[in-house]
Measured scan of single mutants.
Amino acid sequence: GQVHVGDTTYHFPNPEEARKFAEKAAKENNLQVTQHGNTFKVE
């Protein structure tokens, strides 16, 4: 799974890890998570 936060892309071998990371980043920054397959975008 990939997580895009601003201009930075994080790669995770496990989509579940990617999702947890995205949700945590979104919560900390008052942002939203959008999911496209195994790619998550925090914005």
Rank of each mutant, 00 (worst) to 15 (best):
Q2G: 03
K24L: 11
E23I: 09
T39E: 13
T39N: 11
G1F: 15
K20G: 05
K41W: 15
T8P: 03
T8D: 10
F12E: 03
Y10M: 05
Q32F: 12
P15C: 15
T39H: 15
G37I: 02
N14C: 08
G37P: 00
Q32N: 10
H36P: 01
H36M: 11
P13L: 10
V33C: 09
E16G: 06
E17V: 08
A25V: 15
G6W: 10
H4R: 13
T39P: 01
K20E: 11
P15M: 15
A22M: 00
V33N: 01
H36Q: 11
G1W: 15
N38M: 04
K27N: 08
L31K: 06
Q35F: 04
P15Y: 14
A25H: 14
F21K: 00
A18S: 02
K27T: 08
G37K: 05
E17M: 13
A26L: 01
N14D: 12
Q2F: 14
F12P: 03
F12K: 01
F40G: 05
P13Q: 10
V42E: 03
L31F: 07
E28V: 10
G6I: 05
Q35W: 05
A22K: 00
V33T: 03
P15S: 11
K24A: 13
K27V: 08
E43G: 14
K24Y: 11
K24D: 09
V42Y: 01
Q35G: 05
K20P: 00
A26I: 01
G37M: 04
A25P: 00
F21D: 01
N14F: 05
A26M: 03
H11K: 07
E23Q: 09
Q35L: 05
E23S: 05
A22S: 02
F40H: 04
V42A: 02
A18D: 01
E43T: 11
H4T: 14
Y10W: 06
A25Q: 10
N29T: 08
D7Q: 11
E16M: 08
V33M: 07
R19I: 04
E28N: 09
H11D: 08
L31M: 15
G37C: 14
T34V: 12
E23L: 08
E17N: 05
E43N: 07
H36T: 10
E16Y: 07
V5F: 15
N14M: 04
N38R: 04
G1K: 03
K24M: 11
A22V: 02
K20M: 12
G6V: 04
V5S: 03
K24P: 00
A22F: 01
E28I: 11
T34K: 09
H11E: 08
R19W: 06
T39A: 10
V3H: 00
V33D: 01
T39Y: 11
Y10N: 03
P13R: 09
L31N: 05
G1T: 09
P13W: 06
E23Y: 12
D7K: 13
F21R: 00
K20Q: 13
K20I: 13
L31D: 04
P13T: 11
E16I: 08
N30G: 14
N38F: 04
F21W: 08
T9W: 14
V42S: 02
A26R: 02
H11F: 15
N30W: 06
V42M: 03
V5Y: 13
A26Y: 01
G6P: 01
F21Q: 02
K24H: 11
G6F: 13
G1D: 03
Q32I: 14
R19Q: 08
V3Y: 00
T8A: 12
V3L: 00
E28F: 09
E23H: 08
D7C: 14
P15V: 15
